[in-house]
Structures are given as structure tokens and as C-alpha cells.
């Protein structure tokens, strides 16, 4: 494996200087907590909705560079979008991580840099964490709830 394939400069930039990383969000509507026990990643995502749009979005947590950078890039791509549009974009990212060509490469902004991660199956979950969290946050909002906790599949690992 080449480190450059996996860790493009754009990814490292988001890792070193994450965007919209904060432990709290004023007037938040929904807070979701997602964890990935295999990697030990933990992510808190907070969203504020106005006029059916993503008005505010912050993430916080612990995890590998891929998970943190991807969440950072996700926030930039999602803030300001209609909820439905944001869900559609999250689906586009998910499909890209499973090897499909993205339908909306320009809308993913820096998220497109993660396309190479699809070649590293064990890291796909890392890249998806923030996107799965924002999808959950929007769906939680649409269901009328204000919090949700999700533990992603643990494959158990080996000894």
C-alpha cells in the first residue's frame, strides 16, 4: 500500500486543521453519538436545522486521521443544504466508498479526496463514520427526536 494513495494532502489538511470541530453547538436540534468499536472511533455530531436546511453542524470525538478528516470534509459539503439534498449527498458518498463513481463529485467538495480510501476495505468504515452520523442526525430530526446513539458493526477482530 502506498501512504500517498490513502493519505492525500487534502485529507491530512482536514486531519490537522479540522473544520467545524466543536464540542457544542448553539441551539442544537439533534445530537447523535456514533462509535465504531473495532477502531475505537467515537463521534459526536450536532445539527441545527432552519427552514428545512442544515443551518449548523459540528462534530467532535476521537478516531483515526481518516475518520476525523472525513467528518471535517463532510461538514463543509453538507452545511447549507436542504435536508433531503444532504441525505442524497451522504448516499452518494456511501456509494463512492463502495466503489461506485460519485454522481455529484463537485458537491462532495473535499469529500472527493476520500475516493481512494475505497481501495482499503478496513478503512472504509472510518471514512463513512461522519457521513453515517449526519444521515442519522437528519433522520433523527425528521422523526422528531433530539438524540440518538449508534454503535457500528464490530467485526470482532482477531486475537
Amino acid at each position: 500500500m502506498s501512504m500517498d494513495d490513502l493519505y492525500q494532502e487534502i485529507i491530512l489538511d482536514h486531519y490537522r486543521k479540522p473544520k467545524n470541530r466543536a464540542p457544542a453547538l448553539q441551539d442544537e436540534d439533534v445530537h447523535v453519538h456514533h462509535s465504531n468499536p473495532l477502531c475505537g472511533d467515537e463521534m459526536d455530531l450536532r445539527i441545527r436545522v432552519a427552514d428545512d436546511k442544515v443551518d449548523g453542524l459540528v462534530f467532535d470525538g476521537e478516531g483515526c486521521s481518516i475518520s476525523q478528516a472525513s467528518a471535517s470534509a463532510m461538514t463543509q459539503a453538507v452545511i447549507g443544504r436542504d435536508l433531503k439534498d444532504a441525505l442524497d449527498l451522504a448516499e452518494d458518498f456511501r456509494r463512492m466508498m463502495h466503489g461506485d463513481e460519485p454522481a455529484r463529485p463537485d458537491d462532495l467538495l473535499d469529500g472527493i479526496a476520500f475516493q481512494g480510501v475505497a481501495k482499503f476495505p478496513v478503512r472504509v468504515k472510518c471514512a463513512l463514520l461522519g457521513w453515517m452520523a449526519v444521515r442519522d442526525a437528519i433522520e433523527t430530526y425528521q422523526s422528531g427526536a433530539n438524540a440518538h446513539t449508534v454503535t457500528h458493526d464490530d467485526d470482532g477482530g482477531a486475537a
Binding site: M3, Y7, L38, C39, E62, C64, S65, R123, C126
Partner: peptide, 20 residues
């Protein structure tokens, strides 16, 4: 993060286990 350590070591041919 241990996952990032593992990726760097792999690039140098070193096999270690990362995780819980």
C-alpha cells in the same frame, strides 16, 4: 491513532496488530 500507526508500518513492510 493506532490505525494510522498500522498503516504507516504496513507501508514499511512491518506487520503489527492494531485495535482492541
Amino acid at each position: 491513532h493506532p490505525h494510522d500507526v498500522g498503516a504507516m508500518l504496513d507501508s514499511k513492510g512491518v506487520c503489527v496488530r492494531v485495535g482492541h
